[in-house]
C-alpha cells in the first residue's frame, strides 16, 4: 500500500503565512527569529516568515559549532540571500567547549543536546534584542517520534510546520523555492560528524511518514497497518517510540492539590484577550 501524503502546497502556504503573521502580531510583536541550520525545515520556516512579516522583520541565526558541516553554513547563506532576511552568525564553540571539556567521556548524544540547548539560549537572547518571537522548525514526524532535544531545538513561541510530515515539508519546500541542494541532501541534525536522521532513526522518512499517517491521522490499528503492508516489527517500533516520547509533547504535569490547577482546570488559550 502506498499512502499518499501529497498536499496542496498553495493552501498550506496560505494558511501558514497567515498563522505566523497573526500569531506574532497578536502577541504584540512584528518580528521573528529563526535558527537557520542549513537544513530543510528551517529553510522553509525562513521563507514563510519572510513572506509573512517582510524580510526586514526576520532575523536568521547561523550558529555553527566547530564540527558543523561547512555545507550547513553555506546552505543557510543561500536561504538568507534568497529571502533577503537579516542574518547573524554566532559561533557556539566557545560556549560549548568549557562544559564539554569537564567530561572527556561525554557521549555524542549528550554533546548534541548541549549544542541544541545552546542554540536555544542564543535564539532566545537574540529574540529579546531583536524584539521578535522565536519561530520553531519542528515537523510532525519529529514531534511524534520525539526526535528532538527537549528545551533545545523544540523550544519556540510558535510552530508553523508541526502538523506537516517531513515528506510534506519537502513538497512545500519545492513549491516555495527552497534551493534544490537543501531539498536533496540527507536530513541531519548535524550535531556530530556523519550524523543523519535516517541513519540514527533506523528507517526512512518516506517509510515512517506513511505509517505515522495511518496510525495518527487515519486512526489505523497496528494490525491494520500490517495488513496494509508494513512489517509488524516496524509498526510496533514506531508506535512504541511515539508513546515513549509523549513527555516531550506536553508541559510537565503539575501535582494537583487545589480545586483549580494549571494544566487541568485552569483552561485558557494562549491568545486569551487578544
Amino acid at each position: 500500500m502506498n499512502v499518499d501524503l501529497t498536499l496542496n502546497t498553495d493552501l498550506a502556504r496560505k494558511i501558514l503565512i497567515r498563522f505566523i503573521r497573526t500569531e506574532i502580531h497578536r502577541a504584540g510583536f512584528l518580528r521573528a527569529v529563526v535558527n537557520l541550520s542549513g537544513g530543510l525545515d528551517s529553510a522553509v520556516v525562513c521563507f514563510l516568515a519572510a513572506e509573512a512579516l517582510g524580510p526586514e522583520n526576520v532575523l536568521a541565526l547561523r550558529l555553527p559549532y566547530q564540527t558543523s558541516s561547512p555545507d550547513s553554513l553555506e546552505h543557510a547563506q543561500m536561504v538568507i540571500e534568497q529571502t533577503g532576511v537579516r542574518a547573524r552568525t554566532i559561533s557556539i564553540t566557545e560556549m560549548a567547549e568549557p562544559l564539554i571539556a569537564l567530561e572527556p567521556e561525554m557521549s555524542p548524544v549528550r554533546k548534541g543536546n548541549i549544542l541544541a540547548r545552546l542554540r536555544m539560549i542564543v535564539a532566545y537572547d537574540q529574540s529579546e534584542a531583536f524584539g521578535g518571537l522565536v519561530v520553531g522548525t519542528g515537523n510532525k514526524t519529529e514531534i511524534l517520534l520525539g526526535y528532538t532535544t527537549l528545551y533545545g531545538d523544540s523550544a519556540c513561541a510558535l510552530n508553523p510546520l508541526g502538523d506537516l510530515y517531513k515528506t510534506q515539508v519537502r513538497q512545500l519546500a519545492r513549491a516555495i523555492g527552497v534551493p534544490d541542494v537543501i531539498i536533496a541532501k540527507p536530513p541531519s541534525a548535524d550535531l556530530w560528524v556523519g550524523q543523519t536522521d535516517e541513519g540514527e532513526l533506523g528507517f526512512t522518512y518516506q517509510e515512517v511518514d506513511q505509517v505515522l499517517y495511518l496510525l495518527v491521522d487515519q486512526r489505523y490499528r497496528p494490525e491494520e497497518c500490517v495488513q496494509a503492508g508494513f512489517s509488524e516489527s516496524f509498526v510496533r517500533a514506531v508506535l512504541e517510540r511515539v508513546r515513549r516520547n509523549q513527555f516531550k509533547r506536553i508541559l510537565p504535569p503539575v501535582a494537583k492539590l487545589s480545586n483549580r490547577t494549571v494544566g487541568y482546570d485552569f483552561l485558557y488559550l494562549r491568545d486569551w484577550g487578544t
Partner: peptide
C-alpha cells in the same frame, strides 16, 4: 476567519 492559537 482568523486564528485562535493554532486553529485557523
Amino acid at each position: 476567519v482568523g486564528f485562535e492559537d493554532g486553529l485557523n
